Simulated scan of single mutants.
Amino acid sequence: MSKNIFERLQAGEAVSYSDPAHSEIGEAAERTTKLLIEFNSTADVEKNRKLWGKISGEALDPSSMIQIPVYVNIGQFTRIGKNVYINHLCSMLDMGTINIGDDVLIGPKVNILSEEHPVNPAERKALMVRPVVIKNGAWIGAGATILPGVTVGENSIVAAGAMVNKDVPDNTVVGGIPAKVIKKIDQSDRDNY
Protein backbone atom coordinates (compact mmCIF):
# COMPACT_ATOMS: atom_id res chain seq x y z
CA MET A 1 0.00 0.00 0.00
CA SER A 2 1.48 3.37 -0.96
CA LYS A 3 1.77 6.14 1.61
CA ASN A 4 -0.16 9.38 1.29
CA ILE A 5 1.75 12.64 1.18
CA PHE A 6 1.39 13.25 4.93
CA GLU A 7 2.79 9.82 5.78
CA ARG A 8 5.69 10.43 3.38
CA LEU A 9 6.44 13.80 5.00
CA GLN A 10 6.26 12.38 8.52
CA ALA A 11 8.58 9.54 7.46
CA GLY A 12 11.25 12.18 6.69
CA GLU A 13 10.79 12.63 2.94
CA ALA A 14 11.16 16.13 1.49
CA VAL A 15 8.24 16.60 -0.87
CA SER A 16 8.44 19.04 -3.76
CA TYR A 17 5.56 21.31 -4.77
CA SER A 18 5.70 19.58 -8.17
CA ASP A 19 4.98 16.18 -6.57
CA PRO A 20 1.78 14.72 -8.11
CA ALA A 21 0.35 14.10 -4.61
CA HIS A 22 0.90 17.69 -3.46
CA SER A 23 -2.75 18.48 -4.20
CA GLU A 24 -3.67 16.33 -1.17
CA ILE A 25 -2.25 19.10 1.04
CA GLY A 26 -4.38 21.74 -0.65
CA GLU A 27 -7.51 19.61 -0.32
CA ALA A 28 -6.91 19.02 3.40
CA ALA A 29 -6.13 22.71 4.00
CA GLU A 30 -9.30 23.78 2.18
CA ARG A 31 -11.43 21.45 4.31
CA THR A 32 -9.80 22.81 7.48
CA THR A 33 -10.16 26.44 6.36
CA LYS A 34 -13.91 26.00 5.89
CA LEU A 35 -14.23 24.58 9.41
CA LEU A 36 -11.97 27.30 10.87
CA ILE A 37 -14.12 30.04 9.37
CA GLU A 38 -17.06 28.63 11.29
CA PHE A 39 -14.94 27.97 14.42
CA ASN A 40 -13.55 31.52 14.49
CA SER A 41 -16.94 33.15 13.95
CA THR A 42 -18.74 31.78 16.99
CA ALA A 43 -18.39 32.35 20.71
CA ASP A 44 -20.36 29.17 21.49
CA VAL A 45 -17.82 27.10 23.42
CA GLU A 46 -19.65 23.78 23.03
CA LYS A 47 -20.11 24.30 19.30
CA ASN A 48 -16.40 25.05 19.00
CA ARG A 49 -15.49 21.87 20.91
CA LYS A 50 -17.43 19.88 18.32
CA LEU A 51 -15.89 21.83 15.44
CA TRP A 52 -12.39 21.24 16.85
CA GLY A 53 -13.20 17.53 16.85
CA LYS A 54 -14.01 17.78 13.13
CA ILE A 55 -10.82 19.74 12.44
CA SER A 56 -8.44 17.51 14.41
CA GLY A 57 -10.29 14.21 14.43
CA GLU A 58 -10.12 14.20 18.23
CA ALA A 59 -12.52 15.89 20.62
CA LEU A 60 -11.21 18.78 22.70
CA ASP A 61 -11.27 17.74 26.35
CA PRO A 62 -13.90 19.70 28.36
CA SER A 63 -11.10 21.00 30.63
CA SER A 64 -9.28 22.63 27.68
CA MET A 65 -10.03 25.93 25.99
CA ILE A 66 -9.08 27.51 22.65
CA GLN A 67 -9.71 31.25 22.36
CA ILE A 68 -10.74 32.49 18.94
CA PRO A 69 -9.38 33.24 16.49
CA VAL A 70 -6.97 30.34 16.10
CA TYR A 71 -5.27 29.20 12.92
CA VAL A 72 -4.16 25.75 11.86
CA ASN A 73 -3.36 24.68 8.32
CA ILE A 74 -4.35 20.99 8.46
CA GLY A 75 -5.46 20.29 12.03
CA GLN A 76 -5.58 16.51 11.94
CA PHE A 77 -1.98 16.33 13.20
CA THR A 78 -2.51 18.49 16.31
CA ARG A 79 -3.17 16.78 19.64
CA ILE A 80 -4.21 18.82 22.67
CA GLY A 81 -4.18 17.36 26.20
CA LYS A 82 -6.29 18.10 29.26
CA ASN A 83 -6.48 21.42 31.09
CA VAL A 84 -4.82 23.29 28.19
CA TYR A 85 -5.45 26.98 27.53
CA ILE A 86 -4.63 28.37 24.08
CA ASN A 87 -5.01 32.13 23.87
CA HIS A 88 -6.19 34.02 20.78
CA LEU A 89 -4.24 34.32 17.52
CA CYS A 90 -2.28 31.10 18.00
CA SER A 91 -1.05 29.78 14.65
CA MET A 92 -0.12 26.12 14.16
CA LEU A 93 1.41 24.50 11.08
CA ASP A 94 0.95 20.86 11.98
CA MET A 95 1.86 18.56 9.07
CA GLY A 96 4.85 17.33 11.08
CA THR A 97 2.61 16.81 14.16
CA ILE A 98 2.11 19.03 17.16
CA ASN A 99 1.57 17.31 20.50
CA ILE A 100 0.51 19.53 23.39
CA GLY A 101 0.51 17.81 26.79
CA ASP A 102 -1.69 18.40 29.82
CA ASP A 103 -1.77 21.61 31.89
CA VAL A 104 -0.13 23.69 29.13
CA LEU A 105 -0.61 27.46 28.78
CA ILE A 106 -0.12 29.05 25.36
CA GLY A 107 -0.13 32.84 25.21
CA PRO A 108 -1.58 35.06 22.49
CA LYS A 109 0.07 35.29 19.08
CA VAL A 110 2.16 32.14 19.55
CA ASN A 111 3.44 30.35 16.43
CA ILE A 112 4.00 26.58 16.58
CA LEU A 113 5.61 25.36 13.37
CA SER A 114 6.33 21.75 12.41
CA GLU A 115 7.05 22.55 8.75
CA GLU A 116 10.11 23.95 6.99
CA HIS A 117 11.99 24.10 3.69
CA PRO A 118 15.50 22.96 2.75
CA VAL A 119 18.29 25.53 3.04
CA ASN A 120 19.66 24.80 -0.46
CA PRO A 121 17.99 27.30 -2.87
CA ALA A 122 17.69 24.64 -5.58
CA GLU A 123 15.61 22.47 -3.23
CA ARG A 124 13.80 25.20 -1.29
CA LYS A 125 10.42 24.61 -2.90
CA ALA A 126 10.28 21.24 -1.18
CA LEU A 127 8.46 20.79 2.11
CA MET A 128 9.91 18.97 5.12
CA VAL A 129 8.42 18.36 8.55
CA ARG A 130 9.60 17.62 12.08
CA PRO A 131 7.36 17.10 15.12
CA VAL A 132 6.87 19.64 17.89
CA VAL A 133 6.20 18.40 21.42
CA ILE A 134 5.10 20.64 24.28
CA LYS A 135 5.24 18.60 27.47
CA ASN A 136 2.95 18.73 30.50
CA GLY A 137 2.91 21.92 32.51
CA ALA A 138 4.76 24.08 29.98
CA TRP A 139 3.94 27.76 29.49
CA ILE A 140 4.57 29.41 26.12
CA GLY A 141 4.61 33.20 26.48
CA ALA A 142 2.93 35.73 24.19
CA GLY A 143 4.38 36.07 20.72
CA ALA A 144 6.82 33.16 21.08
CA THR A 145 7.70 30.98 18.08
CA ILE A 146 8.42 27.27 18.40
CA LEU A 147 10.30 25.94 15.34
CA PRO A 148 10.17 22.44 13.77
CA GLY A 149 11.65 19.56 15.71
CA VAL A 150 11.58 21.29 19.10
CA THR A 151 10.49 19.66 22.36
CA VAL A 152 9.56 22.04 25.17
CA GLY A 153 10.27 20.26 28.46
CA GLU A 154 7.91 19.55 31.31
CA ASN A 155 7.03 22.61 33.44
CA SER A 156 9.28 24.85 31.35
CA ILE A 157 8.57 28.45 30.41
CA VAL A 158 9.25 30.02 27.04
CA ALA A 159 9.46 33.79 27.58
CA ALA A 160 7.30 36.16 25.56
CA GLY A 161 8.74 36.88 22.13
CA ALA A 162 11.28 34.04 22.23
CA MET A 163 12.23 32.09 19.13
CA VAL A 164 12.89 28.47 20.10
CA ASN A 165 15.05 26.48 17.68
CA LYS A 166 16.43 23.87 20.12
CA ASP A 167 14.90 21.57 22.72
CA VAL A 168 14.04 23.17 26.05
CA PRO A 169 15.06 21.06 29.06
CA ASP A 170 12.47 20.21 31.72
CA ASN A 171 11.98 22.82 34.47
CA THR A 172 13.78 25.71 32.78
CA VAL A 173 12.98 29.22 31.62
CA VAL A 174 14.22 30.16 28.15
CA GLY A 175 14.09 33.48 26.34
CA GLY A 176 15.60 35.50 23.52
CA ILE A 177 16.31 35.05 19.83
CA PRO A 178 17.39 32.34 19.57
CA ALA A 179 16.12 31.18 22.96
CA LYS A 180 18.70 30.35 25.61
CA VAL A 181 18.29 29.02 29.14
CA ILE A 182 17.77 31.91 31.55
CA LYS A 183 17.29 29.88 34.71
CA LYS A 184 16.33 26.52 36.20
CA ILE A 185 12.96 26.27 37.89
CA ASP A 186 13.74 24.80 41.31
CA GLN A 187 11.47 23.17 43.89
CA SER A 188 10.73 26.48 45.65
CA ASP A 189 9.45 27.93 42.34
CA ARG A 190 7.18 24.89 41.89
CA ASP A 191 5.89 25.17 45.48
CA ASN A 192 4.89 28.83 45.15
CA TYR A 193 1.60 28.17 43.39
Results as ranks from 00 to 15, higher is better:
Ile185Gln: 05
Arg79Glu: 09
Leu35Asp: 11
Glu46Gln: 15
Ala28Phe: 01
Tyr17Pro: 00
Ser41Gln: 14
Glu7Cys: 02
Pro131Ile: 10
Ile68Glu: 05
Ser64Thr: 07
Ile112Asn: 04
Asp191Gly: 06
Thr97Phe: 09
Pro121Lys: 09
Pro108Asn: 03
Lys109Val: 02
Val129Met: 05
Leu147Thr: 10
Glu38Arg: 15
Val133Gln: 10
Gly57Pro: 12
Asn99Ser: 15
Ile68Leu: 04
Asp167Ile: 05
Lys180Tyr: 00
Gly12Val: 04
Ala21Val: 01
Ile106Cys: 07
His117Asp: 14
Asp167Gln: 04
Val133His: 15
Met128Gly: 04
Val119Glu: 11
Val173His: 03
Leu113Val: 08
Ser41His: 15
Gly101Tyr: 00
Tyr85Leu: 13
Asp170Cys: 01
Ala138Val: 07
Leu93Gln: 11
Val173Ile: 15
Ser23Asp: 11
Glu123Pro: 04
Thr151Pro: 05
Ala122Trp: 10
His22Thr: 12
Ala162Asp: 00
Leu35Met: 12
Ile80Leu: 10
Pro148Val: 03
Gly143Gln: 01
Gln76Ala: 13
Gly137Gln: 01
Ile185Trp: 12
Val174Arg: 00
Ser156Asp: 08
Glu58Ala: 12
Ala11Gln: 14
Asn111Leu: 10
Ala29Val: 12
Val181Phe: 01
Gly107Lys: 06
Ala11Trp: 03
Ile182Ala: 08
Arg130Ile: 01
Met92Tyr: 04
Gly75Val: 03
Ile68Gly: 02
Gln67Arg: 15
Asp102Cys: 11
Gly149Val: 00
Pro118Glu: 06
Asp167Pro: 02
Val158His: 00
Phe77Ile: 07
His88Val: 04
Leu105Gly: 13
Pro108Thr: 11
Val181Arg: 05
Pro131Leu: 10
Asn48Cys: 14
Val173Arg: 03
Ala159Ser: 15
Arg79His: 13
Leu147Ser: 11
Asn40Glu: 07
Asp44Leu: 03
Leu60Arg: 00
Gly53Ala: 13
Lys109Arg: 13
Val152Arg: 00
Ile98Glu: 05
Gln10His: 12
Ile25Lys: 10
